[in-house]
Design a protein around this nucleic acid. Structure first.
Lengths: 229, 229
DNA sequence: GCGCTAAGTTAGCGTTGATAAGTTAGCGCC
DNA sequence: GGCGCTAACTTATCAACGCTAACTTAGCGC
């Protein structure tokens, strides 16, 4: 995770743990310590992005001020604003896998695992609306992965559902067009729900958990119809 | 010597049906004719929005130039860029209702009507990606309608599915949580599909029609399970 | 001490949405 | 026929943005 391979730690640097460091303007990083500033920039951007809730509201100048540098210094570490924001969001979304693992830890039934995965997915999306928007609602072609259905499997977002759908099929619980298409359809439903909640937060939606269950119910009834017939 | 500063007007950009009129700079509208320019501004903005495919790529200055005025003149007719773009998109989406009517004209079976409504909805969305993005994927609270579930019924987008779902329930074909929740879930699925197609156009998705059918199938199998059991 | 260069800075370009303040055309009215 | 009112517009400008060119300086090896 964090590149803590730096042996020469300078305690006189005045660093505080957590959040963007208070690096003073004019205090320049030592040779080879550029990577540290890179991390600080990511932290600062994430903070601003979460606070603003909108990519547009985050400016390079604001990020620079937060890390105690001037705006052109940012471009020493990132090609442009897009790649900076994108890096932040991908870093954020790497935590989705962990979130899934903890959410599904105590659940054995494959179908219940699918349902729980849907809940965790939507919950994660609405907890990180700005990141979700950047990665899945803004136009940018495609998020570092190959733009094919095979590439989709590398996406944590898709995987989180897919794996459990595969298990449900393997356990003989699902009857449908196969795990690939089933999880694609499920994912699209969950994405539709998540993106609407994010795009229209002031709309008086029914409870998020209720909506996830509603969507799951509607899909699962068809997939399970042999069981509940 | 810039060729674009030629004072003589471009005759080729003559008024075509639905296009922006070639109003010359300096020719000011007569008293009471401000509404005509307002329409011209809407036309010009729609043209630019469709051409660019992105709200961000449309600038007030470009709109002003297209209607032969200066940029502050736009603000005589619209509060700000947001309300201009929004007005354009709502005007565009008013055509969705007609689209639905023609798409469903020859279909009697209520369930098939729901399926066809889904197809028409997603098709309309992907044919007007910029407008769909502005209305349903960007953050703006909420599109002129009341932000309640009751207000959702005024939305053409929702109505287009809802009416047919009601019919399917009335015909005794659907068995589920009721037309309101069923159409909400169906709409969220269709929105998820449409918004992903729009957000990631370069992704090699399966065919759009196949995806709509896939989602319909997954939902309808549950709703219809008495019939196909 | 000398040079190299990573890591910055200062200054500024071009564009954007938006505003303040000035101007002009057209109409009613005496 | 001239006066004034005001709708409809322009000119000039602001502050903020992403981004770049060109310069500077700190720290390291030699």
């Amino acid at each position: 995770m964090t590149p803590t391979s730096d042996p020469s730690d300078d305690p006189a640097d005045g660093r505080t743990s957590g959040g963007a460091r208070p690096a003073r303007r004019g205090h320049r990083a030592r040779r080879g310590e550029g990577q540290q500033l890179r991390e600080d920039i990511l932290d600062a951007t994430e903070e601003l992005l979460v606070a603003a809730g909108d990519e547009q509201a985050v400016s390079i100048r604001a990020v620079a001020e937060k890390v105690g540098r001037t705006s052109p210094a940012i471009y020493l570490h990132f090609d442009d604003k897009d790649s900076l924001v994108h890096a932040v969001c991908e870093r954020l979304f790497d935590r989705l896998a962990d979130r899934m693992d903890t959410a599904l830890a105590d659940i054995d039934d494959p179908v219940e695992r699918v349902r729980a995965a849907g809940h965790a997915y939507v919950a994660f999306a609405t907890e990180h609306p700005a990141a979700y928007r950047v990665l899945f609602m803004d136009r940018n072609d495609w998020t570092g992965h190959e733009s094919t259905m095979e590439g989709l499997h590398d996406s944590v977002a898709f995987q989180s559902l897919y794996r459990n759908v595969v298990d449900a099929y393997d356990a003989g619980r699902f009857h449908g067009p196969g795990p690939e298409l089933t999880s694609l359809a499920l994912w699209m439903g969950m994405h539709g729900l998540a993106s609407l909640l994010i795009a229209k937060p002031s709309f008086e939606w029914p409870e998020q958990e209720f909506l996830v269950d509603l969507l799951c119910e509607q899909s699962l009834r068809g997939l399970l119809h042999d069981e509940i017939g």
